[in-house]
């Protein structure tokens, strides 16, 4: 983190502190100190980290399934042109649908448990990944594909050794978009339905804090969501891009 960002954060906290003191109502706008204290308490006593873990696991399982699906679809798209056309068509109608809008349908089909959450994550992630992969496949160098043919590589081998690394940059940016969409979708879904006793995800944590009118708790949850977003962006995706896209000189 560079110094300037550090100053920005400091400035943000400072102005928050000032405004919240002017407002002077913890139910409306708790001071940053109160939030920090609450955050610490929730992480240690309230198992907030467990809620976060719960959401992240749900997202990652969904991401995993979507990745396998997207790659399989891409594999068949290389072999059969109509597969790509078909999924492009499907993408054009389904991609614009916000996950939360199809939630009622998902509940009817998959119930109110993990299955519905996974379906939601898959919907949120699959289309951005597919859009990116198709774009990469369409501009994929024909020469590279011919190199595979030249060494008599089968479709699977060719996909794994030539296409997959070749479309990696688009794959990563697809996952990046997908992750952001999935994170939002999961939190909204968790706010839509949740399990009271057993641990739920971050969205569920927010609902719980909301219905018991614990505004400070809500802010603690929001801080955690922001931190998770930053960590993933900075330390996972950016790292991933460094060791692939930048190293291979594929940054467009």
């Amino acid at each position: 983190m560079n110094n300037r960002k550090f100053i920005y954060i400091l400035l943000l906290i400072l102005s928050w502190e000032l405004i919240s003191r002017v407002v002077g109502n913890d139910q409306l706008m708790p001071t940053s100190l109160v939030i920090a204290e609450k955050l610490w308490y929730e992480l240690i006593e309230g198992k907030l980290w467990l809620y976060a873990f719960y959401s992240i696991v749900a997202i990652f399982i969904g991401l995993g399934i979507s990745t396998i699906l997207a790659l399989s679809i891409s594999l068949f798209s290389i072999k059969y042109k109509w597969v790509m056309d078909f999924f492009k068509f499907l993408n054009s109608i389904l991609h614009p649908l916000p996950g939360i809008a199809i939630l009622p349908i998902l509940i009817i089909w998959f119930g109110v448990g993990y299955k519905a959450i996974f379906a939601l994550v898959i919907h949120s992630v699959l289309w951005p990944i597919i859009t990116n992969l198709f774009l990469a496949l369409e501009t994929f160098p024909k020469t590279l594909s011919m190199v595979g043919d030249n060494y008599e590589m089968g479709l699977l081998r060719k996909f794994w050794y030539i296409y997959f690394p070749g479309i990696m940059p688009s794959f990563i940016s697809g996952i990046k978009t997908g992750w952001a969409r999935a994170f939002r979708a999961v939190i909204s879904a968790e706010m839509f339905f949740g399990v009271i006793g057993a641990t739920g995800g971050l969205g569920w944590y927010l609902v719980k804090k909301r219905v018991f009118l614990d505004t400070t708790g809500i802010f603690a949850g929001l801080v955690v969501i922001i931190i998770i977003g930053i960590i993933l962006e900075r330390f996972v995706f950016n790292k991933l891009e460094k060791i692939t896209i930048e190293k291979w000189g594929l940054k467009s």
């Binding site: 509940i107 109110v112 339905f193 006793g197």
Partner: peptide, 24 residues
Amino acid sequence: SLDDYLLTISHPDGQLALLSNSEV
């Protein structure tokens, strides 16, 4: 005692879930 089995959901969605083939 039953908190682990409670699910919060709006009235109409709950009705849907009770009548459909879900865990509710």
